[in-house]
Write a protein that binds this DNA or RNA. Sequence first.
DNA 1: TTTCGTGCAAATCATTTGCATTCCA
DNA 2: TGGAATGCAAATGATTTGCACGAAA
Lengths: 143, 143
Amino acid sequence: MKEILEKLRVKGVTLTPQRIAIVEFLKKITAHPTVDDIHKAIRRKYPTMSMATVYSTLELLKELGEIQELSIRKRGKACFDSNPKLHHHFLCRKCGKITDVEVDCPIIKKGWVDECKVEEAQAYLYGVCSECLKKEKSKKDKS
Amino acid sequence: MKEILEKLRVKGVTLTPQRIAIVEFLKKITAHPTVDDIHKAIRRKYPTMSMATVYSTLELLKELGEIQELSIRKRGKACFDSNPKLHHHFLCRKCGKITDVEVDCPIIKKGWVDECKVEEAQAYLYGVCSECLKKEKSKKDKS
DNA sequence: TTTCGTGCAAATCATTTGCATTCCA
DNA sequence: TGGAATGCAAATGATTTGCACGAAA
């Protein structure tokens, strides 16, 4: 945690209490919060925290490579992953939960594809998660 | 083309002129148009065509598995691919063009990952396309 | 003090919805 | 004819922007 804030300071980022709160919240959570999730959570501590500040801080962290933005919810709101490293995501259509997918895909990664320079890569998988499958199964067994 | 319309008719879809126009437009184009692109294009022929109709027809075609929706433009508008088969996409950050990526990735596809059932999969790659790289290079060579 | 960040409110933009009208089967 | 599709306009919801104020360098 401290290292991240230190890294930001070195890069010349002004460490306001709001920004620190957002960084701490993101780096603590393993879920993939939306802008609204972040805003709501931090408002408990800083009741005046505005959406505009959340947006601008997320933009900043993204540019600095500290987080990544996901658009896995089609036509839905953006969500954020505090882990900027290359990995993929699964969205459960039943419960809506997003989980990390750590499989390594030799082609879908940074590098070169069809003579194009790939700087960022994200794969989105959609379906039914193991928990929801279990629930479906136990419901079926009963009937 | 005719086969697609016939397939839709068999499935019980009412074939209005508007729907036919949208299907014909989509199946002719190799690009990845937004809702607005489609609306603008078809308005030339049907000046009263409304956005609502475009949205609802696209929703229908998606449900019937005739097209797929992409959310490759983060926080941007949705775009559509008239090819419903599994393949991936590349978005050039310089020129904004979206191109198909036909590489096959053993993991990013329908099947099972981490005990989750994967029903749909899409990989989005971001970077600089070959054309923009060429332009950059020729500019550098001159200077 | 001069720049930068914040918070508020208003503006924007894509998408959705309600409803009266029109159209296909 | 009757249910479904269309078109319009208004509503919604996320994101962006403008600007005055306050805080940090």
